[in-house]
Design a protein around this nucleic acid. Structure first.
Lengths: 198, 198
DNA sequence: GTCTATACCCTGATAGAC
DNA sequence: GTCTATCAGGGTATAGAC
């Protein structure tokens, strides 16, 4: 029964991920999630005592998967700065559900009173810090120009990832993430290879 | 009374803009909007017969303001490609309410069943087309390299704008839009000035 | 663990008086 | 034009049986 309980909770998290990704927090309903997982609503609330705690469960659960993927990329020893960037997009393209969860939820979360507002503020701060640290060492070891504001560059990279995801999710037939990001990578590369002039 | 009716409708649209921008479509409520505008809920529904039609009213109303701003920038005769880009951000920074409305709503609208899904799909398609046309002439007249996929460049520019808005709205104390976009502008400029080599 | 039953509130929307 | 009254429905959450 103990092993059963764990898989039940994970099944709930998986289904809830899809529902929050499609409808956002306010649009999703506990009854629909419960039904999709083969439970009644009070049955669902046995595992997560409230809707907010279910959302937090989903976010934490998915954040783990996301983080470990990012870390795996950034922590490779001999990876170049630009293959790391490209890997980032490839990873995202593999997991459209996860990407959509975060893209949909972050919009709603701009409201400071939203239950996941703080989660996303912290998430972005941590992500920027991780990436700045990575680029700091990579840029030096690869001999790029050193007069670049890495903090701004990282903000920009994340912006490109998020922005491409929006257009791609909204209109998958018209927008492709990898191509757009490849162009961006080239822009960055060209710029970083230039000698610090002015 | 006819003049009164028009200002009433505009007052409703203004208040509704704020509420949809803060809470999204599902999070906002008609009663809260009605109260904020000094009306009861049925009073509000006299002007907009349903919540969906109110949202469409808000979106159309705000889209006008937005479009005319963009057009004013793109249609200046002698403007350079890069001052046009920078103007885009400056305009956005002036109207945080409008920016937040579209940023919050586009997240929710990724769901194809969302009442404003089609609106945003069309909006982005039209925006990309407008910008591609603009860049086509500007790039030639300014003598930049011609081997660039303008469609991809435009996707990228919009992505940067959207992505910067997310980080800025989420954490205004930590992220500044203009600085990040200035860096992006430099990246693009450096790239476009390079001779078509490979 | 999972259910039935239910409380309770809030939602969008309509009917009809004024 | 704007209101009161009201409806049907759905939302989260709890109590308590099994």
């Amino acid at each position: 029964m103990t092993t059963q309980r764990r898989s039940r909770k994970e099944a709930i998290l998986q289904v809830a991920t899809e529902h929050f990704a499609r409808h956002g927090f306010h649009g999703a309903t506990l009854s629909a999630i419960a039904e999709a997982v083969g439970l009644t609503e009070p049955g669902l609330l046995y595992y997560f005592p409230s809707k907010v705690e279910l959302l937090q469960g989903v976010l934490d659960y998915r954040d783990q998967a996301d983080k470990s993927k990012y870390m795996a990329i950034l922590e490779q020893d001999k990876i170049s700065l630009f293959s790391a960037l490209q890997d980032l997009v490839n990873v995202n393209q593999e997991r459209p559900g996860l990407v959509q969860l975060f893209t949909v939820m972050v919009g709603e979360s701009i409201n400071p009173e939203h239950p996941s507002h703080d989660f996303f503020v912290q998430r972005y701060r941590a992500l920027r810090k991780t990436m700045v640290d990575f680029f700091k060492t990579a840029a030096v070891s690869e001999g790029y120009r050193t007069d670049v504001d890495l903090e701004q560059l990282v903000v920009l990279i994340i912006a490109v990832l998020d922005g491409l995801q929006i257009q791609w999710l909204l209109d998958p037939g018209q927008v492709e993430m990898t191509t757009g990001f490849a162009l961006f990578t080239r822009l960055v590369e060209t710029y970083l290879e230039k000698e610090p002039s002015d």
